[in-house]
C-alpha cells in the first residue's frame, strides 16, 4: 500500500464569477521514500490539490478520498488533521518569508513546532533540537543563529529554516510547493541538494509541486502532469521525458527553449489554458491539441500506455504512441553536458 493514495479528488470553490472547478477527478499514489513531482502551469490545480489533502482549503467543496498511512484525511476532524500536519506531513511553501513569523526567532519557531506536537519536550530540549535541525539543513553556525530573526536570513537560508521546521518531527511525507521558485538558480541548487540528502538519510517521501521541468528531471521518481484540474499523464520520470504519450506533455517538453537549436523558432503550444469556471467538455486540452478528433469530446480515462503498467495517460490516441513517435530530441540540453 502506498503512503498516500488520492482517489477521484474534486475541489470546487464558489466565487462571485461562478463555481471554479479547480481539481476535477485527480488520483495519484505516493510511495514511501520516493519523490512524486506534480507539474503543471498556473491554474492547473496542482497547489489546490495538495492543500486540500492537508485540510488547508477552507470553504471549498471537496469530494473523493485521500488516505495517508491508513488514515482518511478528507473530511477528517480538525484535531486529526492538526496531529498529522507538521508531525507526519511536513510542508514547505514558495515564499519562506511570509511563512515565518517576523517577531519570533527562527529557533523559537522551530522549537515551537516540536513542542506543539509533544508538550513533554522541555523548552531547553526543543531549542537544542532546533539548533541540530538548523545545522542539519546546512545553516552555518546554527547554534548561534537560532536566536536570529527571519529578516536576518537570506532567501535561501529562510527556505532552509522552513525545511528544518518541516522535517523537525521526522515526517513520512514532505509536501514542497514550488520550494525554489523564488530563489536564484545557484541557491535553488543548494536547496534541492538539501532536500535530496534528507530523503536519502531519513527515507522521507516528497511531493514536489513545480512548474519547472528541469527541477522535475533532477528530482522526481514519478511525475503527474496536471492540466485544467486533471492528471493528463502519470509516468516514471524517464518515460515522461523520453516517451511522453499525452500531447500536452509532449507540447510542454517541445516548448522548452533548451529543446530547440539556439535562434530557431520554438514549438509553442498554441492558445491558452481554459477557464476553470467553465472547463470544456471532454478532454480539457482538446481546443489546443494538434491531434484532437471526434472521440475527444468524451473525457478519456487515465489508462496504461507504452506497455508499462506505471505509465498512464488520459488520451484516446493509441497506447503505443510515444514509444515510437513521441521522442523529442534535446540537442541544446545535451550540449550543456559537454561543458567541462
Amino acid at each position: 500500500m502506498a503512503l498516500l493514495e488520492v482517489r477521484d479528488l474534486h475541489v470546487e470553490f464558489d466565487t462571485p464569477d461562478g463555481v471554479v472547478h479547480a481539481v476535477r477527478g485527480l488520483s495519484f499514489d505516493v510511495e514511501r521514500g520516493s519523490t512524486l513531482a506534480v507539474v503543471g502551469e498556473s491554474g492547473s490545480g496542482k497547489s489546490v490539490a495538495t492543500q486540500t489533502i492537508t485540510g488547508l482549503t477552507r470553504g471549498a467543496r471537496v469530494t473523493g478520498s485521500a488516505v495517508f498511512d491508513g488514515t482518511e484525511l478528507l473530511g477528517a476532524s480538525e484535531e486529526t488533521l492538526r496531529a498529522v500536519r507538521g508531525a507526519r506531513i511536513g510542508m514547505i511553501f514558495q515564499d519562506p518569508l511570509s511563512s515565518l513569523h517576523p517577531y519570533y526567532t527562527v529557533g523559537w519557531q522551530v522549537a515551537e513546532m516540536i513542542r506543539a506536537h509533544d508538550r513533554t519536550v522541555t523548552r531547553a530540549m526543543a531549542r537544542e533540537r532546533a539548533a541540530e535541525l538548523l545545522s542539519l539543513v546546512g545553516i552555518p553556525r546554527a547554534r548561534r543563529r537560532v536566536d536570529d530573526y527571519p529578516h536576518q536570513f537570506s532567501g535561501g537560508m529562510r527556505q532552509r529554516v522552513m525545511i528544518a521546521m518541516a522535517v523537525a518531527l521526522d515526517p513520512a511525507l514532505l509536501i514542497a510547493d514550488e520550494p525554489t521558485t523564488a530563489l536564484d538558480v545557484t541557491v535553488q541548487a543548494q536547496v534541492l541538494e538539501v532536500m535530496q540528502q534528507l530523503q536519502d538519510r531519513f527515507g522521507t517521501a516528497i511531493v514536489l509541486i513545480t512548474h519547472d521541468l528541469g527541477v522535475v528531471a533532477e528530482m522526481a521518481d514519478e511525475v503527474v502532469v496536471m492540466y485544467a484540474g486533471r492528471a493528463m499523464e502519470v509516468a516514471p520520470r524517464r518515460e515522461l521525458f523520453y516517451h511522453p504519450h499525452h500531447p500536452y506533455s509532449e507540447g510542454l517538453l517541445r516548448s522548452l527553449p533548451s529543446r530547440g537549436e539556439p535562434g530557431s523558432r520554438l514549438v509553442p503550444v498554441p492558445g491558452a489554458p481554459p477557464s476553470l469556471l467553465d472547463p470544456p467538455q471532454g478532454c480539457p486540452f482538446r481546443p489546443r491539441c494538434p491531434h484532437a478528433f471526434a472521440d475527444c469530446h468524451d473525457q478519456p480515462p487515465l489508462r496504461p500506455v507504452g506497455g508499462s503498467p506505471d505509465h498512464l495517460s488520459a488520451c484516446w490516441l493509441p497506447p503505443s504512441r510515444g514509444t515510437t513517435t513521441g521522442e523529442v530530441p534535446a540537442p541544446a540540453a545535451r550540449e550543456l553536458q559537454e561543458a567541462p
Binding site: A189, L213, E218, L336
Partner: peptide, 28 residues
C-alpha cells in the same frame, strides 16, 4: 559562469543524472 551553468536544472534525465552539480557555498 561554470557554477551558474551547472546549477541550471536541465529537463533531460540522462543529462541531470550524469552531470555533476557544483553547489556554490553561501549566498550573494
Amino acid at each position: 559562469t561554470r557554477a551558474l551553468l551547472s546549477a541550471l536544472p536541465v529537463a533531460d534525465p540522462d543529462v541531470s543524472d550524469s552531470r555533476r552539480r557544483i553547489v556554490l557555498a553561501g549566498d550573494l
